[in-house]
């Protein structure tokens, strides 16, 4: 019950945080020199044409008025229209956010399902072959630039081996599954469309691996070091002295304790991943938010930038809250 009250308090506290983020994002994006209206109509257009566009998007009004207008819209769930393509920003986000979310979640699954076991193995078999192998995997991971890794993956698995598709979320000829969540993998399962599921998964593998590799490497190292620290604790000696099996000692007594630092890193990584995997999305032509926000910034598309910022910061706040709640479950010494 206390955890529910805590969650509620944290959600309330998120409101000023998000307001602050929106003010900052608004000021910074408007401080960028350049005029979106001029970008739209081109350098040769008349002053009147520019003014007309400015008026249409409310850019002629003072900044505070523009901000309040934005806030007013926000309360009704309206993030304004994109200056660039005239579509409501909410519609754009609804298109692009699920793609990024799907890619992020797939990367997270990869990170956790490979990184955690690899870290545990490295800690338990410290300074032996498995540890050295895990070290090579993670050093390569943290030191490989994403763009290079992406290109190499494409070269090998798409061009030479033709095992996996190289771009997009589905083949160009396929229609997306009926949208419930916007995550094609989930939607395909919900629709029972197995060939489409196969297709969506095969499209996910390369970008998800590319995106996850750095984080996988970091998580492996964190799990390894926190596991080693925990395995040296007195209560591990107690557990062994009590005749518990090696499996119970590692997976029951050590693992839960070592998860606390791991959860912190996973939370931070997840926030970063959601914030837009610009390089990965560009390399694999993944129609996600990363590419969307870069295009928006280039066009000084203020409503789009604000919309993205709010989504990303809300995700951050939510993930941090999730991490804090998880702490309380993992560590009984933490009480809120």
């Amino acid at each position: 019950m206390r955890i529910l009250a805590y969650t509620f308090r944290r959600l309330l506290a998120a409101i000023p945080v998000l307001l602050g983020v929106s003010v900052l994002a608004f000021l910074i994006s408007h401080a960028i020199p350049g005029d979106p209206a001029r970008l739209i109509v081109g350098p040769k257009a008349s002053k009147e044409a520019v003014e007309a566009i400015r008026k249409e998007h409310g850019l002629d009004r003072p900044l505070p008025v523009q901000y309040l207008h934005f806030l007013g819209g926000l309360l009704t769930g309206d993030l304004g229209r994109s200056i660039r393509n005239h579509r409501p920003v909410t519609e754009d986000l609804a298109d692009y956010f699920p793609a990024t979310l799907e890619l992020t979640l797939a990367s997270l699954v990869l990170c956790l399902s490979v990184g955690i076991p690899l870290g545990i193995l490295a800690a338990v078999r410290r300074n032996r072959f498995a540890d050295h192998a895990a070290r090579v995997v993670s050093v390569v991971g943290v030191s490989t630039p994403v763009f290079w890794l992406g290109l190499m993956l494409l070269l090998l698995f798409y061009r030479h081996l033709s095992w996996l598709p190289g771009s997009g979320r589905l083949d160009v000829t396929s229609a997306p599954p009926a949208g419930v969540t916007g995550l094609y993998v989930v939607d395909a399962v919900l629709a029972g469309n197995w060939p489409l599921l196969r297709e969506a998964v095969s499209h996910l593998i390369l970008p998800a691996f590319c995106l996850s590799y750095v984080y996988l490497a970091i998580i492996t190292r964190i799990v390894r070091s926190s596991m080693i620290a925990v395995l040296g604790q007195d209560y591990i000696t107690t557990a062994r002295a009590n005749g518990l099996s090696a499996g119970r000692v590692v997976f029951k007594h050590a693992f839960k304790n070592s998860l606390i630092p791991t959860v912190t890193i996973v939370g931070l990584s997840l926030g970063e991943l959601l914030g837009g995997a610009i390089l990965t999305e560009t390399i694999f032509a993944w129609p996600g938010m990363g590419k969307y926000v870069v295009d928006s910034v280039n066009a000084l598309d203020f409503p789009a930038i604000m919309g993205f910022t709010l989504v990303a910061s809300t995700a951050y706040v939510a993930i941090n809250l999730g991490v804090d709640v998880l702490y309380a479950f993992l560590n009984p010494r933490i009480r809120y």
């Binding site: 604790q233 209560y235 107690t238 304790n257 993992l330 560590n331 009984p332």
Partner: peptide, 9 residues
């Protein structure tokens, strides 16, 4: 102080 596992009862 440290011989019992802190995360289990």
């Amino acid at each position: 102080m440290s011989s019992l596992n802190p995360v289990y009862t």
